[in-house]
Amino acid sequence: MASKPARRKQNPDARMPLREHLLEFRKRIILVAIGIAVFTVAGWFVYTPVFEALQAPILRAADTGDGLVAINFEGLATALDMQIKVSVVIGVVASSPWWLYQLWAFVSPGLRSTERRYTAGFLGAAVPLFLGGVALAWWVFPHAVQILTDFRPENTTNLLNAQMFMTFAMRLVLAFGLAFVFPVVMVALTWSGAVPSRTWLKGWRWAVMGIFVFAAIMTPTPDAITMIIMAIPMCALYFGAIGVGALRERSRRRRAARQQDSADADA
């Protein structure tokens, strides 16, 4: 009597259907929002020293030049609105390990169970890169303010709209932080099989052009040196991410070939 065919074991790493992906995405978004909200409350209490640090280059420009340079709060609720926005940005920066972990947790179901142990490696790379981008933007910001205010003619007044000034500062900080962490996301997408490394490599010209355009927009100083200083590390991280993804793909192919050879030998 012929034996019944053995049942296939369920693959724990099988890809989730679309509905489960959407539910998982919603769950991660809620967790991210809760984490940011908690740190936003903490950011409310450190708003004053952060605002003083952001205002410092304006005060220096006012001391070294002729005329008035100051931040102007135009509306009645402008100061409150700005404090809320700055607190949210502080919350985003401070909670970066939390929401980066949620990003990894959303991507990791596409990885094999043996690869999910790289969570610590992902966070160990993503968090310092994000904070490094934030620190770089923090370093660029006062230089940009100083250079831009130097264009003001003598004996003139430069009253900076508080909302626009703070929006520019916060956008700069978050943009550089996210730009520096994007290569780690590239690696995660390559490891999950969502985007092969050759796809990233094929688009390297567009990526480099986009990086330099981004650097030109986000560094409002008129000199090209600052733009190049910003763009070169981002390009290096982009190609480094491609290299890491390609090495992992090659390792997978070698492991698959060994398993195939072992299966052929046992047949």
Score class of each variant (00 low, 15 high):
253 R>T: 14
7 R>V: 07
108 S>R: 09
27 K>F: 08
146 Q>F: 02
60 R>Q: 13
207 A>W: 02
39 F>K: 02
260 Q>V: 12
9 K>I: 14
93 V>I: 15
19 R>T: 09
7 R>E: 14
217 I>C: 09
77 A>D: 13
6 A>R: 13
134 V>F: 04
7 R>M: 11
137 A>N: 00
32 V>H: 01
265 A>G: 06
138 W>T: 12
187 V>R: 00
149 T>M: 10
134 V>Y: 00
68 L>S: 10
123 L>S: 05
165 F>T: 04
136 L>V: 06
153 P>Y: 03
180 F>Q: 00
82 M>A: 08
89 V>F: 04
97 P>V: 10
36 I>P: 00
121 G>N: 14
140 V>L: 12
75 G>S: 14
258 R>P: 05
246 A>P: 03
121 G>C: 03
151 F>P: 00
153 P>R: 04
185 V>A: 14
148 L>R: 02
112 R>N: 13
54 L>F: 07
212 F>S: 04
143 H>R: 07
195 V>H: 04
236 A>P: 04
133 G>E: 00
158 N>H: 11
41 V>L: 15
75 G>Q: 14
142 P>Q: 02
230 M>S: 10
20 E>F: 04
186 M>N: 11
97 P>N: 05
228 I>Q: 07
56 A>T: 08
242 I>Y: 06
266 D>Y: 10
30 I>K: 09
134 V>C: 08
159 L>D: 06
111 L>W: 05
177 G>H: 01
237 L>E: 00
68 L>G: 02
243 G>N: 13
61 A>M: 03
112 R>E: 12
60 R>A: 08
130 F>D: 00
147 I>F: 06
91 G>M: 03
137 A>L: 05
25 F>E: 08
168 F>A: 11
4 K>W: 11
161 N>Y: 00
130 F>Y: 04
88 V>T: 06
90 I>M: 14
109 P>F: 07
209 M>V: 11
25 F>I: 09
110 G>H: 02
115 E>K: 04
186 M>F: 07
42 A>S: 11
93 V>A: 08
73 F>I: 02
18 L>F: 13
151 F>S: 00
179 A>K: 01
103 L>D: 02
92 V>A: 06
244 V>Y: 11
44 W>M: 06
187 V>Q: 02
243 G>K: 13
181 V>P: 00
210 G>F: 10
24 E>V: 01
200 W>I: 03
